[in-house]
Design a protein around this nucleic acid. Structure first.
Lengths: 201, 201
DNA sequence: CCTACCGATCGGTAGG
DNA sequence: CCTACCGATCGGTAGG
């Protein structure tokens, strides 16, 4: 039951925001009475924290896959980026909830992100710095800022599926934005040509 | 008075979100009674639309400056991007409100953005396509998707000032993110070296 | 997990 | 621009 509450709350918080979602709306979606929900989560704030913990927990599960992709095999860059992309692609509400949380609780999320991101951030930026010494990565690139850039652009791409279509009105709008995101990330990182060059239409 | 209501409502909506801001909170911030606020704006929804219209209206004023910067003088690229950057830099709440509106009302904002962006979007993308024919811009770049990328990254950079600091913990975090944004935009657009190359520290 | 219920606050109206 | 007030809904509790 806790699982079902978290799922419905996640969906509603991502869609309408925490402040615009009542406990009644969540319990209706689950199919239980409001006091029953408050047995599982003592307060609305406790429910919010439960949802955020759940999201960051599922992110933690993906980190090893990202690191594995980034440190072995060919096309390490594409493989690692694909892992980040598919995390949000799997459920775009993850991107929407993350954006809302960062807007609603910047200080709190700053601390949590630091905690959840720093382990793999350091590995990725070390890797980039090695590439800079070898001359394959631009020397004037700021590793931490570049990773933030790529991650936040990924979140934005999936959070704003619909709005992207306003400017890219064809039905391939989503695919175009993802492809351009990958292209921009690649071109801004490597001084050399892509191993597998992006299709040019 | 209408002006003061719009300013305070904008601030509060950007900070806490529309659903988490009561009319009482807005009227308190302005220093009037709640029914007085409802004389100027018939409903909470009318207030929201007033705030959004005001924001998009101020964007409209910047568009000519962007186009002027983009089509004359040297370093047209840097000059045009600077105009977009300074619009949000002037008041980061613009970025926050925009993000929230797009999350809360994707269909509505899609229509409004299309209306407010398409005039200059077409001019900018035409310009990029000319650059592609001349060979200075990457041929595999997707002009509309690229502009969306740069704009949304600008919005994200200013909306999430605090969270950026979690990963870039020094006190130059904000400047680093802006510089990297400009660098990424440049490197992903031009095949050639920058006219004024980014400092490499 | 439920019914019944709490005080506080919500958006909005009446009337001046 | 105000006071006074409305029904509805809010988050949360009592008690079983």
């Amino acid at each position: 039951m806790r699982r079902r509450i978290l799922d419905e709350a996640m969906r509603l918080f991502a869609e309408r925001g925490f402040g615009a979602t009542s406990l009644q709306a969540v319990s209706d979606a689950v199919g239980i009475a409001k006091p029953s929900l408050l047995y599982h989560f003592k307060s609305k704030t406790a429910l919010r924290l439960g949802v955020v913990d759940d999201l960051l927990g599922s992110w933690k599960d993906v980190v090893p896959q990202i690191l594995a992709a980034a440190t072995s095999g060919e096309n390490r860059f594409e493989a690692a980026l694909d892992e980040v992309l598919s995390f949000f692609q799997e459920d775009p509400d993850r991107a929407r909830l993350l954006l809302r949380e960062v807007l609603d609780h910047p200080a709190e999320m700053r601390a949590r992100m630091e905690q959840h991101l720093s382990p793999w951030m350091n590995l990725v930026t070390d890797y980039i710095r090695r590439g800079q010494k070898e001359g394959v990565v631009y020397a004037d690139l700021d590793p931490e800022a570049w990773v933030m850039h790529v991650v936040s652009q990924t979140v934005a791409t999936f959070a704003f599926t619909q709005v992207g279509e306003a400017v890219l009105p064809d039905d391939a709008s989503y695919a175009r934005r993802v492809r351009e995101l990958v292209r921009v990330a690649h071109r801004s990182l490597f001084r050399t040509e892509p191993t597998a060059p992006p299709d040019k239409d």
